Computed example of a mutant assay.
Amino acid sequence: MTASTKEVALVVGASRGIGRQIAIDLAKAGYAVVVSSKSTSDPSSTSTSTTPFPPDPNSTASTITTVEREIREAGNMATALRVDTRDYASIQALVSQTMATYGRLDVLVYNSGAIWWAPVAQTPMSRFQLMQRVNIEGLYGVLQACLPHFKKADDGEEYRGRIVVVSPPIYSRFFRGKTAYAVGKVGMSVLTKGLAMDFRREGKTRMAISSLWPATGVQSAATTTTLNLGREEDACDLRTAHIFSDAVLGVLRSEAEEVNGELLVDEDFLRAKGVRDFDKYSLVPGSRPRRILPRSFPDLRVEEQDDEGRRVDSTVLRKSKL
C-alpha cells in the first residue's frame, strides 16, 4: 500500500449521469477518485467502430470502466472498483480495496439509488425491499465501512473528512405518490442529521456529512429513462448534471460546521455562494427549467433541541451486562 499524496474521493453510484459527472469533476479538482458502482464493462471494448467513446453518459454503455478511462485520458487519477450496495461484504471489500490502493480516504459521495414512483398499492414488496436495500441500507453499510478510515493520514488520530449524500430535504409533499421511495430517501436524510449530531457530540469538528438534492429535474439515467423524462418536450425542464456536481464541490470546499447536518438544495446552495448565472446549466439553451421543490422547508428543530435528557447508549449497556 502506498499512501496517496492526493486527497482521495470515493464516489458510490458513479457509472452514469450525476454520479459520473461528480467523479469527473472531483478528478479535475485534484482528487484521486474511486469510481464505484455495479456496472462494469470490458476495457478492450470501450472504443470500437460500433461503440463510440466516451459513451452517452446516461446510457447503459456508460460504466465505471468507461468513467475511469475518461478520467485517466484527461490526465487525472481514477480507479474503478465494483460494488453491490445490497451486499455488506461487497461494500467492505470496496473500502478495503480503496485503502489498499491509496492508503487514505477523504471524501465519500453516496449517489447509488433505486427508484420507483407509485402509490403504495402499486409498489410490490420486492420493489420496496430493493429500494430500501440500495438506498438507506446501502448508505448505512458504506458509512459503517468508511467511518474508521476518516483519520488524519500522519498520526491516525484526528478524524477529518467529508460525506455528501444524495437525499432530499424533509417535507411532507415529497411523500405524495411515491411513499415507498420516500421511506428510504428521507431515511437517508435522517441518517445525515443523526450522524452530524454524533460528530458534534464526539468532538469531530473536522468531519461533516451533508445531504444534497436538485431543485429542478437534472438530466440523468433516472430522469430520462426510469421517470420517462427523456422526451424532447421534457428537455426544457431539465438541467445538466454540472449544476449538481458544482454544488458537491462547493459543499466540500465549505467549512465543516457550515454544512454538517444540512439538507441542501443545489440551486439554493450555489446561489448563497454567489452563483448568479443558472442559464448555463439548462439542458436546452435559453430555457428556464421548472423548479420542482418548495422555496422553503420546515425547520426540524424543536424548542428542547439541546436537552438530551437521560441519553441511553446501547453499546455501554451491553458491556455492563457482560
Results as ranks from 00 to 15, higher is better:
254 S>H: 11
239 R>D: 02
242 H>L: 15
149 H>K: 02
34 V>Q: 00
315 T>G: 07
172 S>E: 15
98 T>Y: 13
85 T>Y: 12
12 V>N: 02
193 K>G: 08
267 E>N: 10
305 Q>S: 06
174 F>R: 03
227 L>E: 05
191 L>E: 07
247 A>E: 00
30 G>Y: 09
289 P>A: 13
80 A>C: 05
77 M>W: 10
309 G>D: 04
190 V>C: 08
240 T>G: 12
83 V>E: 07
113 G>A: 13
162 R>Y: 03
29 A>L: 05
140 Y>H: 06
291 R>M: 11
81 L>E: 02
65 T>L: 02
321 K>L: 15
293 L>C: 08
232 E>R: 15
39 S>E: 10
190 V>E: 02
97 Q>Y: 06
227 L>Y: 10
228 N>I: 07
200 R>A: 05
32 A>C: 09
20 R>K: 15
31 Y>M: 07
80 A>T: 02
247 A>S: 09
278 F>N: 01
90 S>P: 02
226 T>V: 12
77 M>A: 14
99 M>S: 14
267 E>L: 13
209 I>K: 03
170 I>M: 10
171 Y>D: 10
248 V>C: 03
282 S>W: 11
190 V>D: 12
99 M>L: 15
107 V>E: 08
117 W>Y: 13
161 G>F: 00
69 R>G: 09
76 N>P: 00
227 L>I: 02
266 D>N: 11
199 F>T: 04
9 A>V: 04
123 T>A: 06
233 E>G: 12
8 V>S: 01
98 T>K: 10
238 L>R: 06
237 D>E: 07
50 T>N: 14
